[in-house]
Design a protein around this nucleic acid. Structure first.
Lengths: 219, 219
DNA sequence: CCGCATCCGGGGCGATACTG
DNA sequence: CAGTATCGCCCCGGATGCGG
């Protein structure tokens, strides 16, 4: 059960002693992206992880003070896993990891790669911006087969991603993950995207309102 | 030889596919801290790593475009391993990892923990500041048994760590790692440090000039 | 059905020996 | 000095089972 230590009196090594094991930071990513979750939902959001590993990681993170398992609220009797304050302080690290990985998204998913729409949460809040801050509130629904999510321009020029379908989105996009990513990154315009199978329905001008000024990834 | 992929089309996972393996980020740490290095020097700075793993990690990082092995300059015939531009862009990530690990330094080194003075490089440049920016240049030499390093107040209020002994340091400190860390973190004053075995020689007022305003770690 | 524990095969990892 | 080769072990991945 013990995670092997690097045995170095160095802050970087000490961190890796806690979050350096395989899958650990991806578990943290999930908990950062959507608050307290059930075991099964975590398992679903982490395609490929073995059940025993997820349990082991959660226990390890709990021992390290990163995760806290709360008793469930009355309606459903189950345990929820959430981040402690210490755990939430890992957000800059995970975001940094995401930033460094952006160039590797350009090639598109590898054969057999899994995809979950809510993984777009960090990229959306980091790279998209509302170019018309005084414009009306608006929502864009994204569908890629797995789950529907909603890009919302909230006040102040910032853009966020909600992990739920939208009742009446101003624009609805349906396409494969790499096309969605390309459009949001500003490297694929609507015409190209359509050729790649994108279906758009609604106010397409919204895309230009939120798309990044300069392409985020090269090609 | 292949590093197993998480198989997720997500920037965080893609990063971890490259730098998520064991020892990988510590190799990057070393290369960030002191430019191109020889294989043996790397091995020495990474106590505990197996020789085959170091070779394997260097090859993997080279394949990923993070590390470049340069032919040696004429005097000594050997190969040097250094970071590419892509590799250097990992610095924010490693620094973030170090920041998150700072609280775990307070407990002191675990039984058998190794220590290298140059690991203090990031903490020094991040947490120390020259409170007397217009004062004369000054140097503090740190000795903890392994290697001598030098804290230097350069212009502009910033402080940096040089990985070499100082010819004529204004202050020389000799103590165990945890005491040195405590002093630099501002949680251990000179009197306490002396009781813990610190030997100071020179202008002790220099410590107050560079020590952080508020303690960096709790206790 | 949810939340794991158990079992098992394969491979990454850790330590040492060995070679150009 | 700079790695490669070898070997045992434990972590990891995948499947199944089982109690709540």
């Amino acid at each position: 059960v013990s995670t092997r230590s690097y045995g170095q009196y160095c802050a970087v090594a000490k961190s890796l002693d806690v979050v350096g094991d395989r899958w650990t930071l991806l578990v943290v990513r999930e908990l950062l992206l959507s608050g307290p979750r059930r075991y099964t939902d975590l398992r679903n959001a982490l395609p490929g992880i073995a059940t025993n590993l997820l349990a082991e990681r959660l226990r390890g993170l709990e021992d390290a003070g990163v995760v806290r398992s709360e008793a469930a609220p009355p309606p459903v009797a189950t345990t929820l896993y959430g981040l402690t304050e210490r755990g939430r302080s890992l957000e800059p690290l995970v975001r940094e990891l995401g930033r460094w990985g952006v160039p590797m998204m350009a090639a598109g998913p590898a054969e057999g790669d899994a995809f979950r729409s809510h993984w777009l949460s960090f990229p959306v809040s980091e790279f998209l911006a509302d170019r018309d801050p005084d414009g009306p509130p608006a929502t864009i629904e994204l569908r890629t087969g797995d789950e529907a999510v909603t890009v919302r321009v909230c006040g102040g020029g910032s853009v966020e991603l909600l992990q739920e379908a939208s009742a009446h989105p101003d624009l609805a996009l349906n396409a494969r993950p790499r096309v969605i990513v390309g459009v949001l990154a500003g490297v694929v315009d609507l015409a190209q995207a359509r050729a790649l199978g994108l279906q758009a329905e609604g106010d397409e001008a919204l895309l230009e309102r939120v798309a990044p000024a300069a392409p985020v990834i090269s090609a």
